[in-house]
Design a protein around this nucleic acid. Sequence first.
RNA 1: GCCCAGAUGGCGGAAUUGGUAGACGCGCUGGACUCAAAAUCCAGUGGUAGCAAUACUGUGCAGGUUCGAUUCCUGUUCUGGGCACCA
Length: 922
Amino acid sequence: MELKSATQGTVRLALSREHKGYREYRTENTEFRILSMEYNFRDIEKKWQKWWRDNGVYKVSNDSSKPKYYALDMFPYPSGAGLHVGHPLGYIASDIYARFKRLKGFNVLHPMGYDAFGLPAEQYAIEHGIHPAVSTENNINNFRKQLDNIGFSFDWSREVRTSDPKFYKWTQWIFLQLFDCWYDRKRQKAEGISELIAIFEKEGNKNHPVPDAKFEIRNPDLEILGGNFSADQWKAFGAKTKHDILMEYRLAYCGHGEVNWCEALGTVLANDEVINGVSERGGYPVIKKKLRQWYLRITEYADRLLEGLLAVDFSESMKEMQTNWIGKSEGAEISFKLQAASRKTDGSKLTADGSELVVYTTRPDTIFGVDFMVIAPEHDLVEEITTVEQRSAVEEYITYVKSRSERERMAEKKISGVFTGAYCIHPFSGKEIPIWISEYVLIGYGTGAIMAVPCGDERDHKFAKHFGLEITNIIGSHYDGEEANPTKDAVLENSDFLNGMVMKDAISVVVNKVEELGIGERRVNYKMRDAAFSRQRYWGEPFPIIWKDGMAYPLDEKELPLELPHVESYKPGPEGEGPLANLPEWYHIQDGGVRETNTMPGYAGSSWYFLRYMDPHNEKEFCDRKYSDYWGQVDLYIGGTEHAVGHLLYSRMWTKFLFDLDLIGHDEPYKRLVNQGMIQGSSRFVYRAHGTNLFVTLGSKDKYQTDELHVDVNFVDGVELDTEAFKKWRNGEHANAEFILEEDGKYICGSEVEKMSKRYFNVVNPDDIVARYGADTYRMYEMFLGPVEMSKPWDTKGIEGVHRFLKKFWRLFADEEKGLIVTDESATNEELKTLHKTIKKIEEDTERFSFNTGVSAFMIATNELTDLKCHKRSILEPLVILLAPYAPHIAEELYQQLRASKVSPVGGDLQGASVVDTLYPA
RNA sequence: GCCCAGAUGGCGGAAUUGGUAGACGCGCUGGACUCAAAAUCCAGUGGUAGCAAUACUGUGCAGGUUCGAUUCCUGUUCUGGGCACCA
């Protein structure tokens, strides 16, 4: 027979079986059985996706009288593994919200792009010889195909790719602005470097002292002057000195910092790539090495980044994470004179001429509780103060520390350290205090040295106990001799002039005294360090910088983009620089200049991409001010918490910087941030008796000595293994497997929730889900799974319920025999109650991002209307529109059918119009 | 180690502001339709005892506040995310 199909006119169907009341058909092309007038999601989804694309339905204009709404996803890194079912979670949520806002009458910007620079593409190139540009392009195409299956309403005409020269031209351009600016602390904003030069020429730097960051290379001329210079001295400096001094002010500056260096691989490694002091690949030793690096002076923005959090709608925990990362603390720097009698390494005695150890403390009130000092192993004083007796022990310890990553140093429970042999003098009591070295003190924080107060600080206490050091109790009964007590409320004892004072009141007393004596000062400190902005890699933005005579010169704007040259080898350069250092013909330019051979890090492009979507094809500017003023902040930003402190802080800083330069009109990029949880994989295990091919079911595994093996979740039904499929798995690797089964004859697998990843064989591909159940079912199920913000494991089993709901919803409109069955009868009170209850519930749920309860509300409404046998247009039409953000294909199909049918033409010419253009009924 | 989350039936989860715990879905059990299966529909389903009405018990664990706690507080365990070159 012939059947009118919703998509392709007439489709020939072979009648395979006929039963009373229904018929079963089989199409020529698909093995799936369908029922006539059944919900045929494959045809419907294909049809509407094509229709939306062909008609540019989701193309958004920068010119509209409607209010704007900007709904943004964190753009993906196009990895070779493609999308798994977890990735689209946030995209579906933002798509639902974007569609909802469109229906509510907003002009919605909902773009998508690719964070296309990054390490994995380069690793892939090293291993497979495929150029990153090629693999990235392939990956992007694959991502796009997968995304297109799901029916998103992205405006693809605005797509950005960070690796596209048309895009990174502007990344480089913004970098040059950062390079060309300094931060004026008085006005709390970025200013041009030329203004700073004018100030120096007029008054030196007395009103604008050198900002202290951790990474600058100090110019010797400046060092001699103690960091201060007059106008005349400035004018007398040579070009190189001036260059170096300005470098200490620039917002993008060159300094030097420590990296994980692997000699055997000849390359710098990420912390992730270092495991227990050796490289993940190959297991070669890794040490700390100082390299010249670019940095962004994000520390200058620390206070504004903190203040900005007050004005944005982020979760409290997100704000807390950022606040803690910035780690603002108020305290004091205090100098301790070194004990003159201590002998230096060369045997000579330390002179008493003022060698000092400067510590940073947030608890000056505990100054009489200091029992020892601890300095970081990298501290400059280590070499100077270590005595002959302690020399070999110290050297041994430092070698040990060099092999340890920062992560390991922080995570270590074991206490380690070594005594330097030197002492310093307590400024008030005159007591001699031993100076120790330990890895728990980090060189990058404060002054890299602490005064240890074991009775009040837990780590100091453990250290003192471990090495049998004295513990002075200054807090009386608050200290029990077993555990440190960090209270601020105790009344001080054993504290000389502070005795009897409550600790928190004593803080300012001590600081005042210290300042009065000139041995220290009040100090604000941040845990956050300047952001390392260069990578010794290939697949990133080249720096538009030329080095000549040790000085950095920016490229002229007209020379941008500086394109990434093609390389044949991705091996690092001779001194551990990036692969670009192997291209002399590229980096050598006329009159002796050489190009910077480092590249920018992954977060460079992602720090501003949200602005480019507003004006993606502009070749004259990164974004026309007119359009950034129209779109303004991102109203809704969705992404994972893994970006809590990296990307989000960097992009907030870049936004503030561009705002300072008056290039955009807002100084916080995101108005509202929603963190989606991770969809985790649910891994399955089989247990192989050690050294055999005998596989033991979960219930009996303890009777054998077994090894745990991941098996592909795709042939495990729940926890029951399909043993035949297992035997065929991976080219019959386990073809000879034998099984010990449960009593009921099943093989039961173990299970565990893990990250969804190829290597755990727990990946579920959204393509498969969409092919089987359709995009609408997939979208709704992914939402139904639980709150967007929560992490949860994927389980395909429950999807049937959502699919059933859509079929049931369909049956409110269409009967397999009679076709469309919608009538024009007026609704009963009961039906109206269901409708209005549902509208209220779903609008509320959608607005507050509770999509899971929203989906439930649809199910409840559908069940109620089914029970009421309600097929009335006045009830169903609003429901369809309500459903459109969640399940756009089926909603579009049913809406169009309602409009096209002769059952009851309603007013208004909406023939051919899309649901997305239609407002909810008021 | 430090910072941030989370924990509720066999499973995913609901309870929006401290007020009937378990909505909705999966799974399971029984039934209708069918030669049969699928699909669809109906009923039941936290645990224990009971034919039942019902009773007791129950939101990771131990305490606390409250007339009342899944919700607030203190401590604790486990799981997940981050910790600066993965993105």
